[in-house]
Amino acid sequence: MLGLIEKDLRLTIQRKQTVAIFVVMALVLGISGSGTFAVAYLTILAGIVATGTLSYDEFDNGLEFLMTLPIDRKTYIREKYLFTTAACTIGWCISLVLYVVCENFRGTNVNLLEQLPVLFIILPGMVVVSTIILPLQLKFGTEKGRIVLFAVVGCLSVAIVAVNHMFVSTTDALSFIYSMQGISVGTVIIVFLAICVLVGFISYFCSIRIMQKKEL
């Protein structure tokens, strides 16, 4: 596991220019006023950089060689999820610092404690989005995986719009929103976290299954 983390860290360092560009873009976004968006943006980019190490592994039959090393398939997948979660967390922490710096730069007084719950739920959300990429990439490869990801996101968007449309047409949306106001922020965060953990575990077990069936 440690060897794999070392490999992925070194591969990520090789992409330092890409990482630097992402940080600069997040800074620009932060200064221009989209502070919370910049936090989500940098966190998801960190996740994408981390999942990108899978493409590096798969390039030139690299995965085949990696599996000849003292690593089993389960450990490989576990490391990818761990590395992606760690990358998102680091990205989130950096983006939080940048957010505070940008807000101060713009002369806004930031009450971080007050905003922390909203900023916090970005992290598990972005980790889950990143980890959904992994089984798709493992199953379909880097190029096809991206197409499938776009297709999945497209289908989900259409489904959400369709459900929303049905919902608005059959019930009173305002009364639902009012009823939601009664729920505490803590409950919303817990429910959201539970959904993220559930989706994360489904993604993890799918990846394990795909990897164990994979012929290299």
Partner: peptide, 24 residues
Amino acid sequence: AAMSDSGFSMYLTAEDIIHILRKM
């Protein structure tokens, strides 16, 4: 194992490989 058409990522260096293998 030494495979004919696969190995560590082309973006790594031999120095990187030393650090990786040391941990493996």
